[in-house]
Computed example of a mutant assay.
Amino acid sequence: MSEFRPPRRLRLSRAIAAAQAPVLLPQGRRLRASTPRLPDAPLPWHGRVDGRGESAASGASRPLRLLVIGDSTAAGVGVDHADLGLGGRLAEALSARTGRPVQWWAAGRNGATARDLVRQFLRPALEQPYDLVFLTVGANDALGLRSARAFRRDIRRILERTFAAHPQTALLMSSLPAFFRFRLLPDPLRRSLYRHSQALEREARALVDAHPRSHMSPPPPPYTEGFFASDEFHPSAIGYRDWAEFAVDDADSVGFLRLLDDH
């Protein structure tokens, strides 16, 4: 069987962006100058959601342990309390699906790439065991026009090191943002970012979905009214809720959450 080759527009996404640089670079500078820079959610980046009908003190069942690791979305940019960010919202969605309490932690940094996670955050984050690791990365790799080969290498390292440290964990990776739906992005910057993000996502999906204990979410549905924070780039509390519910619903629908039953 011949090897599958991605569409030419994905294979050449960096070259196309480079050719458009005289237009894209000024657009990017104007966008950075005009877009408000929102802070991370205040610390602490951890919390607990009780299981169905359970008080925090009852201890009826061991909580699922969730790590959210990644970029600004792991850091809760766009909300004023970490419980309303991705970590807290994923814990809510998981608890609602499983009926179990969920203890969650988040690690990462605004602006982090996959390489930054490998070099700075992964090892300390994996010092304790987790039942589920949620990986949210790639947007900054796309914004920085990192090569698909480099991104694939870093995702492979994240997978290898996560499962080497905790063979029985499960890893769920988010799809990359649907940049073509970001209203604040002008064309052709919007089209260029989306095209390159799809090239990166294809590489990540091939690795993640090949591992028996990992899964990558499908592309997101259209963003709902109120999804974005005031910068029109990061999710709001509503956006994080919608994202978390979409990711958990998909993981449940394909049977991925059954991996958590053993914990």
Score class of each variant (00 low, 15 high):
Ala82Pro: 08
Ala41Met: 09
Leu66Pro: 01
Gly85Cys: 13
Leu94Glu: 04
Glu92Met: 05
Thr35Cys: 08
Thr35Asn: 09
Leu67Ile: 02
Gly59Glu: 02
Arg65Thr: 08
Val79Lys: 05
Val49His: 01
Pro42Trp: 07
Ala93Trp: 00
Leu67His: 01
Ala74Thr: 08
Val68Met: 10
Ala57Ser: 14
Asp40Leu: 12
Asp83Gly: 14
Val68Phe: 12
Val68Ile: 15
Gly59Met: 15
Glu54Ala: 13
His46Ile: 08
Gly85Val: 15
Pro42Thr: 06
Pro36Asp: 12
Asp80Arg: 13
Ala41Ile: 11
Val68Arg: 02
Asp71Arg: 06
Ser58Trp: 03
Leu86Thr: 04
Val79Ala: 13
His81Lys: 14
Leu38His: 07
Pro44Met: 12
Gly53Lys: 15
Pro36His: 13
Leu66Lys: 04
Gly78Met: 04
Ser55Thr: 12
Ser34Arg: 15
Pro44Ala: 12
Asp80Asn: 13
Ser61Arg: 15
Gly53Ile: 06
His81Pro: 10
Leu84Lys: 09
Leu90Lys: 02
Gly85Leu: 12
Leu94Gly: 01
Pro63Ser: 06
Gly78Asp: 01
Ala91Val: 09
Ser55Asp: 05
Arg52Val: 02
Pro39Gly: 03
Arg52Phe: 06
Val79Met: 14
Ala74Lys: 02
Pro44Asn: 09
Gly59Asp: 05
Leu94Pro: 02
Ser55Glu: 05
Gly85Ile: 15
Gly53Phe: 09
Gly47Gln: 03
Gly47Asp: 04
Thr73Arg: 13
Arg48Glu: 10
Ser34Asn: 10
Arg48Thr: 09
